[in-house]
Write a protein that binds this DNA or RNA. Sequence first.
RNA 1: GGGGCUGUGGGGUAGCCUGGUUAGCCUUUCAGGUUUGGGACCUGACGACCCCGGUUCAAAUCCGGGCAGCCCCA
Length: 480
Amino acid sequence: MTKGLSVKKDENFSKWYSEVLEKAEITDLRYNVKGFVVIRPWGAMILEEMYKLYEQALQKRGHKPSFFPTVIPKKNFEKEAEHVKGFTPEVFWLKKVKGEDELALRPTSETAMYQMYSLWIRSWRDLPFKLYQRANVFRYETKATRPLIRAREFYWIEAHDCFATKEEAEEQVQEDIRTTEEVMHQKFGIPFLPMKRPIWDKFAGAEYTIGSDVIMPDGKLLQQPSTHLLGQHFSKAFNVKFKNKEGKEEYVWQTCYGPAISRILASVISQHGDNFGLILPFIISPIQVIIVPIFTKQNKEKIIKEVKKIKDELIDKGIKAEIDLREEKRPGEKYYEWELKGVPFRIELGEKEIENKEATLFIRDTRKKEKISLKEIGKIKKLGEEYDKRLLKKADDFMKDRIIECKTLKEIEEALKEKKIAKVEFCSTEKEGISCAEVIEKEIGAEIRGTLGNKKEIPKGNCIVCGKKAKEVVYIGRSY
RNA sequence: GGGGCUGUGGGGUAGCCUGGUUAGCCUUUCAGGUUUGGGACCUGACGACCCCGGUUCAAAUCCGGGCAGCCCCA
């Protein structure tokens, strides 16, 4: 373990981020292929906890798990015209394979899953049909890659749903936003803006896309889970049909939803971390309580016995606890190490604690030490819930300040300079608005991220660029 | 696409301008010992000048090319 961080989070975020990844042992960036990183055990364990919560939420809403192949035959991949066009530049092709067709490493799995859907779905009784899979996907990014934020291989969940009607599909899109709210926001503590993307920025093959924009500490936006109304584009391309109650064949209406767990981890790290390293939400920390025994040769046995009792009790209460028994490290070094790794609670236990029958409890987010009676060690569960609420509140407060209503281009520029997001009235996010969007991109270097995806906001005035009557309220920011 | 900067052990760096000792320092790692209430100490060990070419008696250092990374602008 190296020493602490050499930069402060708010002084040089990008350096802070790389250092935390390395020193908290989340990733190792030395794998010598651009855009591919090694995820180390601590990082993998956090991802695992996040996957669990996400999959639970999807299953609760009627999704079933599945696993599809990583490779997609070229023939399949090219069935939906717009999709091919959008994704082809980013595809890794496997050239040296035997067989009739070239294979793509999946950049996303519509074209793998839907050909099977066409075999499985027959009747209105099969609908709604909702599957998800845990998967790694591959995209040949041409922009600068950043570990976990933009990688050429990343780890996500993709849910692919089919319905009998467009209304049900649209309701699914709203449900997906609520899933993001429940898991990413409420559980992981990451607030977001559900942005219905402008037409020129939608998913290739979709009717519309709603992306969740998260604000990073440097003020740039990072797209988190997106949900797409695919309509019947793919069902027609892949022949996914059902017989309705009248016995007539119809194409299904589809949606897909993709939370990138590895990228959400990037947000968790960035949102909650401080100058001492990571701060993990209690609910996803692989170790929730680290117990550091303090002993000498004389009382070693006694202390260790006591500490094991505490660990067992915590585990009985459903709390993930570990004892740091390493003898080559002194307590102080262990403190720094577990703080760097973001463990929410630390119990220190030595001679004094045993005498007084109360342990020393260190709390990661506030960095304060308290006493906790050895008899009520189980109340850490409740303290953990309070801890997560504090993280959530802090993140929400951070977000609240970030959105500024702007009336002129100059005001937008000022908002961006202060690492904020501009909220403005705008002519249109349909085709006719594209030239105004280009003005904003060229003159300010920022993007129209979209309109609120779960609530319609009605503009009163005119478009900030062209001055015509505004049809929409849009949000503008710089992005990763 | 245009411009700039930088490549030295696992990580961070000094040395480069002005060529010349065994490439220095911090950290990590490994072995052994003494320690253990907020980054311990001692002893020992492993480990580096991005690549190719040129200049020179001599190149980490100067020159040319390549590759890689970072930053800024479009």
